[in-house]
Nucleic acid binder design. Structure first.
Lengths: 203, 203
DNA sequence: TAAAGCAACTAACACGTGTTAGCAAGTAGT
DNA sequence: ACTACTTGCTAACACGTGTTAGTTGCTTTA
């Protein structure tokens, strides 16, 4: 039998597996449409392949979500490990952590956004696992702020509330990404630090 | 023919139409699961009725989303109309607006949350309409802040960035709602105002 | 009590979904 | 050139979706 049809292939450089290509495209799609609304056929089209072909590289749609959520979560956990160990003031730790969050949100927009908004669609045991990590992370962040309060570096406020404000404020970078007339990334970072750290400092 | 089956009815008090009951339950469901993931059969169960019966009261699933999104948007637009007209300082205007946002998020959690997160699933022309209203609202908010900057009431910052931080920070009240050991609503409001307004004020 | 209208029901349709089976076509090693 | 492996394809399934048609039951009005 003679076939002359053209068979697409997912392009890859060295060190980038075809699976990575798929995961990356998935992040873009999940951000645009939301996890539920993005179909495997949409994803296949973005990758340049038929839907069924994706399953040579991944196990399921939710696996894509796991990968995205946990890779992001791990980056933040490693960073807070690092920062906690540094011999600097509480307010400096907060600032460092904020700058990391801001830069992650600027440079790895799609993944971070998806991890933040779409984790609800994870299935157990991944779901509980993710929620746990999240809870723990926030507690550690709050502990840094508490320390700053008892040092009188930081205003007397409810630390968990402060954490919640910081984290959500940063997720607002989403709007910056979409806006037509953006200020530069550096200016954005500087402005956010000014307002957020300025709101914490005790005079 | 003799039928003895029980036919459920949606309970209503005076002034609350059956449609209102449906819309309210829809808000809860859309928040929990997301618009796409929440099915009409889920909604029917929450209301205590079969899925098809809902269509005696509503036109479509998306109509529910329209109603939610625009009722919330209108409340905010009316409020900013009101505040703009008041003869008070810029920083007082910002504080009033923030307090309104915070209270809306506390007291009408489900609707506000859905309007904030799920508007992407609106269909044109509602979609463009909503986006426009949102854009305009933010510009008006930013204009108040700009005024405060030129008055030297507020730090020299990028006003649109400040707006973005404020609005997203407030959406963090979502986490407060879900947390097990909540501080009181009054404390929450006070803390948020302290941090956010504190971050704006010029010394 | 009869008539009219509202609000529920059952049944079903058309469609889009994630995923699998089985096979063809490329690629790499000998 | 032969073989083994990877990666693509087509076809199809089972299921869940929003929604409509047609009918029965309940409530209100005359």
């Amino acid at each position: 039998m003679l076939y002359l049809r053209f068979m697409a292939r997912i392009k890859t450089d060295k060190n980038i597996s075809r699976k990575d290509v798929i995961v990356t495209k998935a992040a873009i799609l999940f951000r645009e449409k939301g996890f539920k609304a993005a179909s495997m056929r949409d994803l296949a089209e973005a990758v340049g392949v038929e839907a069924a072909s994706l399953y040579n590289h991944i196990k399921s749609k939710t696996e894509l979500l796991h990968e995205l959520c946990f890779s992001v979560a791990n980056r933040f956990l490693h960073k807070i490990d690092e920062i906690e160990a540094e011999p600097i003031s509480a307010i400096e730790k907060v600032e460092k952590l904020l700058r990391f969050h801001i830069n992650e949100m600027i440079n790895h927009y799609e993944e971070v956004y998806v991890s933040d908004r779409e984790w609800k669609h994870l299935a157990d045991p991944y779901l509980s696992n993710f929620q746990n990590q999240r809870r723990i992370y926030r507690k550690r962040f709050a502990a840094i702020i508490e320390k700053g309060i008892s040092n009188h570096e930081i205003k007397k406020i409810d630390a968990p509330t402060a954490v919640l404000i910081m984290l959500h404020a940063i997720s607002g970078i989403e709007s910056w990404h979409r806006s037509t007339q953006k200020i530069s990334a550096e200016e954005l970072e500087a402005n956010m630090i000014t307002i957020l750290v300025g709101g914490l400092i005790n005079k």
